[in-house]
Write a protein that binds this DNA or RNA. Structure first.
Lengths: 230, 230
DNA sequence: CGGTATTGTCACGAGTTTGTCACAGAGCTG
DNA sequence: CAGCTCTGTGACAAACTCGTGACAATACCG
């Protein structure tokens, strides 16, 4: 349930308060004062969730949400809007913003917690059917085909799911147990080191396409699929 | 992607919200407050999709779903159930009565949108009467004839439907159970491995036309008819 | 009615996939 | 550098998947 949350909020008081509550709830919190700052912060690692103030100086929350949705990497990261009272709920949820939920200020910690939990829970069975493409490697869930620089790649079912998960969550380190949860399923009892072996098999399978370095080992933390060449 | 959607929901607030979101997404929305009203509304024109609240005053959502399924005209209109949280048991029941999917309240517009898209896509490419042609293999539903590179091919009824389905949905992997649903029919009880046998018979029948490699086996996933030669 | 075609099921076996382990090597710490 | 931890690697056995041939039940048809 613990998650990395990006909080975009310009009022220092509210920012502090929310951050405190989220930290208490066991989440890691990254704060940004502006849309620009937020944009920079998601460059190299993705949050699990974005808390986005509706009104921001400069680029508004709505614009940022739209921008995130347009960005392939951020497309699947859920967004919760923070709105002042009186702003139309329909407007927030509906107008092509792509927000997943909204909360009206002032809100209680409990409410915030509940919304976050709900959104995170929904995110779990998020099997998109969209084709993913990174650094010349393309994976199509529908036709179940993987191609690297034109060369077709043969993968077993598990390797396929693993690669799919990593490609839909690039630039983010996942521990072995997180990968087991996400790729194998929460309830499965499998040794953590098994992940290593599958990562290896993936790397081997990708070798002919010169994509060996796509998956980084982050010592002591887990693995990460990097969107940019090292 | 735009569709006519019948929304059956008694709570005015939710009805309004959902209607707003659907309209924003480009759909036409018809609203009904009760099962009786919904029944009347489908008398003269069919929606593309029904969004059905689980709990309704009077006739419940599940009864209405059953009624729709019994009605020949509505039999092929997909139904998505809206359920309150914690009605897990009902989910099973709902799917049994012929609902195509279900969404747990509260749900986000994005989630709703995604489900609708998925359900519509699943139903969309219905069997047409048009001739299909792929890689020199042609199938004519009207004359019930199949020709591969000039050579006529003899197929049994089931093989014919299977090939027809695959040819109208190329480059897409289907699991055995999906194929059973689509080719054999939704509620037929047949062993999954039966699909294998029919795939084999298809391949055998296509052998004289040198189309053996038309149907790929995707290990752990199902079968796929590939539009391009390997 | 007999014969043929179609269909669903099964059992067997070759070939794959997968989880686990043991060991080697790499990386960090002091 | 020594000692420790962490990761890469090759091997292996068990589990699983799929193709295949055979068979019985049923439908179809002249």
């Amino acid at each position: 349930m613990a998650a990395t949350i990006l909080l975009v909020e310009d009022e220092p008081g509210i920012q502090e308060l929310v951050k405190f509550n989220l930290t208490q709830a066991g989440h890691s919190v990254l704060c940004a004062d502006s849309a620009e700052m937020a944009t920079g912060m998601v460059k190299h690692s993705l949050p699990d969730l974005v808390l986005l103030d509706w009104m921001l100086p400069g680029m508004s929350g709505i614009d940022l949400a739209r921008k995130f949705r347009a960005d392939g990497r951020m497309k699947n990261v859920p967004i919760i809007m923070l709105t002042a009272r009186g702003e139309e709920r329909d407007k927030v949820l509906g107008l092509e913003t792509g927000a997943d939920d909204y909360i009206t200020k002032p809100f209680s910690p409990r409410e915030l917690s509940a919304r976050i939990k709900a959104v995170l829970r929904r995110r779990a069975p998020q099997m998109t059917e969209d084709k993913v493409e990174i650094r010349g490697l393309s994976l199509d869930p529908v036709s179940h085909r993987v191609t690297g620089n034109g060369t077709p790649v043969e993968l077993g079912p598990t390797e396929f799911r693993l690669l799919h998960f990593l490609m839909t969550h690039p630039e983010r380190v996942y521990s072995r147990s997180q990968l087991l949860d996400q790729v194998w399923g929460d309830h499965v009892f499998v040794e953590e080191r098994t992940v290593d072996v599958h990562i290896r098999r993936l790397r081997l399978a990708l070798e002919p396409t010169r994509h060996e370095t796509l998956i980084d080992t982050v010592r002591g933390a887990g693995y990460r699929l990097s969107a940019q060449p090292a």
